[in-house]
Write a protein that binds this DNA or RNA. Structure first.
Lengths: 180, 180
DNA sequence: ACCTGAACACCGTTCAAGT
DNA sequence: ACCTGAACACCGTTCAAGT
């Protein structure tokens, strides 16, 4: 019958992110998302399987695509750019970001981000096992810092202090790797 | 009228933890908690302000009291014991633990744990500012690792690999501090 | 003082029915 | 194909009423 679709999955995910950004995770309900799209809650179920699926899509959207203009940089700067992109994503979506540590994303995009880190570490001279382990620990530290900041765990410190904290974290990570 | 209380706040929190441990965070409802105590959901509201308050109490309960028999140990072992206690707490309550990074605990107990780390770092020779900063970064890394493990972000690696990851993390932290 | 029954607003979800 | 109305089970919460 080819009725033209009023919404699609991307629009649902974007609307959900906007609701969460503006009113917090507790306000992220199916009616609220639908309302923002000018549609009833039931219409969403043609585009997402259920609310869990929608939350997973949000988490997926939090992972920054690797900034493409950094592809040619030396590994150290590439890692720093990626870490900065993660932190920026948390700053943009503070209400949703903590979900990233709660529902591990096992998606294509997540794998790609991981591979980017691992290959930078291999360039740094680590063996395959060591690089995989270092990726886990570095990602955990960066994700943990970004989630903490987003959740307001450092809220009593101002931006400058937190920037220095983050620089310190990057330096600590860097000191574990070969110089270059 | 002094009717003897059937339940108290501690019992409510303990029941909530048990429900979450056994059936997951999604199953943590007021009726479920009440049911486990042989009481109706409305009875809970005399002991917790609301569900948010109950979740905050759960988060509080996740923070390990510093293992008392380690008080006399040198600072390095004390830090390691505390980190291990955090990881153990996450292993005991994997469903609830990720909330710790989502709702920062600003309680007495949280402050005490923080102070324990800071004073160990001061013993290590750091100045007040450096110790405070190192505490933030170390806590973030340890909490992030424990939350990741609890949420299953490393689920495809077995226990032994994760133990080595954790040992690696501790070593990385230790290498940032003076030897001792 | 502490608990319960009844009640309300609300949410996630299904399904048949409309276009 | 896509959306809506009606409906269901369920949840958080309040409040008057019981003991």
């Amino acid at each position: 019958m080819g009725r033209p679709a009023q919404i699609d999955r991307a629009a649902v995910v974007a609307a959900a992110m906007a609701v969460a950004d503006e009113h917090g995770l507790a306000a992220l309900t199916m009616p609220a998302v639908a309302g923002r799209l000018g549609v009833t809650a039931m219409a969403l179920y043609r585009h997402v399987a259920n609310k869990e699926d929608l939350l997973d899509a949000l988490v997926e959207a939090l992972l920054p695509a690797p900034p493409p203009d950094t592809a040619a940089l030396p590994w150290r700067q590439r890692l720093e750019a990626l870490a900065g992109a993660v932190r920026d994503s948390a700053a943009r979506h503070p209400a949703v970001f903590p979900l990233l540590l709660q529902r591990p994303a096992a998606t294509e995009r997540a794998r790609r981000a991981r591979d980017g880190v691992v290959s930078a570490l291999r360039e740094a001279g680590l063996g395959p096992e060591a690089a995989a382990r270092a990726e886990r620990l570095i990602s955990t530290a960066v994700l943990g810092f970004a989630a903490s900041e987003a959740a307001g765990r450092f809220a009593h410190h101002d931006q400058r202090v937190r920037d220095e904290d983050f620089a310190c974290l990057l330096e600590a990570i860097g000191s574990l790797l070969p110089p270059a």
